[in-house]
Amino acid sequence: MRMNINIYSGDDVIVKAQIVSLSSLKAGESGIVYDFKGGENLLKKLDSLGIRKGKKIKKVSDMVLRGPITIQIENSSRIAIGRGMAEKIMVKIGN
């Protein structure tokens, strides 16, 4: 899923960004964790591994046949995330 957002200041677009789920981010692309579409439990699990809003991440790989996604958190660890969970992590890319 991809969706464009524009942030306005008056009539001028000051930021143009895209919000995508981690699963549809391309391998090699970087972004900033923007939001989670899951419950408390998911948030807690991700938080303990250092995945939380505002963190810069890079998608390292995307396993075939709906396998897990591996990300590198900036200045932190490399984490593999199952597809279902990755669909619930929204990432902001672009400017």
């Binding site: 591994l49 984490i79 593999a80």
Partner: peptide
């Protein structure tokens, strides 16, 4: 089954 979530060590 739940989803995989593990740290990949160097």
């Amino acid at each position: 089954s739940s989803d995989l979530l593990i740290e990949i060590p160097t």
